[in-house]
Amino acid sequence: MSDDLKDAPLGQTSAYITEYDPTLLYPIARSVNRASLDLDEDDLPFEGEDEWQAFELSWLTPTGKPVVAIARFRVPASSTHLIESKSWKLYLNSFNQTRFASSVEVRRVLRQDLSRVVDAEVEVTLFGVDDMALAPGRLPGICLDDLDVEVDTYQPDPELIITDNEIIEETVHSHLLKSNCPVTGQPDWGSVLIRYRGPALDHHALLAYIISFREHQEFHEHCVERMFMDILREAEPDQLLVMARYVRRGGLDISPWRAMPGETPIKTLRLMRQ
């Protein structure tokens, strides 16, 4: 386990505080993982966001009546830090028995605390539990999952990425993405979408590459950056977007995307599994 995770609440017994406590948030420097990918923090080849959705958010009105909501957070990939997921859950739980004047105040406090910890402006949106904006959708493009592939590699291997000389523009996706938490070893299930313009990616090989993350231990955000960099270096596309939609765990789901500058992201898309 890396030094930046030794004191993290993930994988440890934790008290569930129900009174507001912003000190529960645990930041992790993005630079640690990016160094292993030979990325320069001052000259990143991508832009992007980590989109979080929280389904277990509640607080009290000034009269003590509970309010429930669903929150969406967008953390820019340019932030110096990400937030460890269990600490985020513990922080949100600390709202449970705290009285706030209004949902406007809750949103202000959330934005203020999260932005301070990641050292960048975090976008916060609150939804009612029946808001149609949360209705699930489907990933666009070609689904690779029915391809007949033989797989014997379960750690990321960029050499699995194969291209030919034809220049194309396409969108493909797979629901077979699985990686593991680097602290607890628990499985993280997800779907991934890849949109690019450049030398055609061999679909069978690309699916085998996606599956190769199956025993890999890394945070969601790191997996997406690794996938983006592997495709960028091996295929040398002119345009590239990699977006993952991970299944909810502990009341939170995480959907990071990374894209070459100028690429239009696919936002506010939730899948049935989330």
Rank of each mutant, 00 (worst) to 15 (best):
P27K: 02
E263V: 14
D253S: 13
T153V: 13
W88H: 06
R245E: 02
D148V: 04
A135T: 13
L207D: 03
Q112C: 12
E121M: 05
L207P: 01
R197E: 04
S179E: 02
A69N: 06
P45R: 00
S191R: 12
F73N: 05
D152W: 04
D113L: 08
I161H: 02
Y246S: 07
V75P: 02
D131S: 08
A101Y: 06
P62F: 14
G190E: 11
T264P: 05
T98W: 06
L60C: 10
T61V: 08
V124G: 01
H203N: 10
D157Y: 10
L271P: 09
C223Y: 01
N165G: 15
L271D: 12
L44C: 14
L92C: 01
I142K: 15
R30F: 15
F127A: 02
V149R: 06
S212W: 03
D164F: 05
D145C: 11
I17E: 11
M1R: 00
R249S: 10
D4T: 09
F228V: 08
D119E: 10
M227H: 02
R195H: 15
P199M: 03
T184L: 00
L176W: 01
L90E: 00
L39K: 10
S94C: 06
H81I: 03
Y26P: 11
I168L: 12
V75H: 08
R99S: 14
F55G: 04
K86H: 07
L139H: 07
T18R: 15
D130L: 14
Q155R: 10
K65F: 02
W257C: 01
T23N: 12
M260S: 09
M229P: 01
E170K: 15
L241H: 10
M260Y: 08
G48F: 05
V183D: 03
P136L: 00
N93K: 06
P187R: 00
D40A: 13
G48Q: 09
T80G: 07
G64K: 15
V67A: 03
C223E: 03
L240R: 04
L201V: 09
E105D: 08
T125V: 11
H175D: 06
D152C: 06
F95H: 07
D40C: 11
I231M: 07
S78V: 02
V118N: 04
L44E: 09
M260W: 05
I211T: 02
P9C: 07
V109G: 03
S191Q: 04
N165E: 13
L25A: 10
K6N: 07
N96H: 08
R233V: 03
G190W: 00
W88P: 00
V32G: 11
F73L: 14
F219I: 11
G250H: 00
E150D: 13
R116W: 03
P261L: 12
I83H: 01
D3T: 13
F127R: 00
T264W: 06
P182V: 01
W189V: 00
A208C: 13
E166Q: 12
E19V: 12
T268E: 09
T163L: 00
